[in-house]
Design a protein around this nucleic acid. Structure first.
Length: 286
DNA sequence: AACCAGGGGTACC
DNA sequence: GGTACCCATGGT
């Protein structure tokens, strides 16, 4: 059952939760974020803009090493701690064996509330890359262009003006390949204020999609990821090669996400995470 | 060592 | 409106 217990530890250097519906590991490996990494001690460091936090999970006990204030203001929203996903799970039809298996395998993944700018650039450079390669490029961008913070994640995600002013050679050295002009032009559009990411917050889905797709290197898939992971449009269902593969193998080529309404995005995460797993190969044979 | 990766732009038709 | 082809790099 869902437990919503929060212990405020004295001196408030950490916040401890007891939750059986959260997995930091699965969330870190779910491919929605690229700056949440396993440390040698088993904890994770999660980074976001220019801030970072250490999170350690042992069973149902999750410890955030931050002040109570930072937890309430930053990390609780970021990890979507307040949201109960069980109502989303209840919408899965009993006879959809694949989606039920995907849900069971993936349960614990959180729908993170990420930064729009960081998510936009991350997914522009995600195209035709696997997740380790994306993480590598993002890390290089931070090291080369990000402000030094001295925090757990020492370098912030670079500000728009830094990427707009970068040379092609500098960007290429981050492994961006042919995506260099996409990143640079998009950074210039954001930096110059021709498109204001904050203002898109109150756009309806179709207008938000259109606005994002005007950016170079942004098509429907990248825009969908930004909408789901940063603008929190939970009814959006991004289709990448893995999802399309699952649709071919499990849904005669098309999964109708519309019946899931604002849990479509979560279902997509489950399908993606399960579809990539070794467990799924076993599921197909069975 | 081939093959593939959380795709988009472009040139066609 | 579709569709074929190219794109640069790194992980497996």
């Amino acid at each position: 059952m869902l437990m919503l217990v929060s212990l405020k530890v004295k001196e408030s250097i950490m916040v401890v939760l007891n939750r059986d519906d959260i997995s930091i590991q699965k969330t870190a490996d779910s491919g929605q974020c690229f700056r949440m990494n396993l440390q040698e001690d088993g904890s994770y460091i999660a980074a976001y803009r220019d801030i970072s936090v250490r999170v350690k999970q042992e069973g149902n006990t999750i410890t955030f090493f931050c002040s109570d204030e930072d937890f309430q203001n930053i990390w609780s929203p970021y990890f979507d701690i307040e949201c109960d996903y069980s109502v989303f799970h209840d919408r899965i039809p009993k006879d959809d064996f694949f989606l039920n298996a995907a849900k069971d395998y993936s349960q614990g993944i959180r729908m993170l509330r990420q930064d729009t700018w960081e998510t936009l650039i991350s997914f522009i450079l995600s195209q035709r890359k696997n997740i380790p390669a994306i993480k590598s490029s993002v890390e290089k961008l931070c090291e080369k262009f990000g402000v030094y913070t001295g925090g757990l994640a020492p370098y912030a995600f670079p500000e728009p003006y830094r990427l707009a002013a970068a040379t092609d050679e500098e960007l290429k050295s981050c492994g961006l390949g042919y995506r260099v002009p996409y990143v640079k032009k998009t950074a210039d559009i954001i930096y110059s204020g021709k498109l204001k990411l904050d203002e898109l917050n109150n756009y309806p889905n179709d207008e938000l999609l259109n606005a994002l797709c005007t950016l170079p290197g942004v098509g429907v898939k990248v825009a969908s990821c930004v909408m789901l992971f940063a603008y929190r449009r939970l009814d959006i269902f991004p289709r990448d090669v893995w999802i399309k593969r699952v649709e071919e193998q499990q849904y005669n080529g098309h999964f109708d996400e519309s019946i899931y309404k604002d849990s479509a995005g979560l279902m997509q995460q489950y399908m993606f995470y399960f579809g990539k797993s070794e467990e799924y190969k076993y599921f197909i044979i069975k």
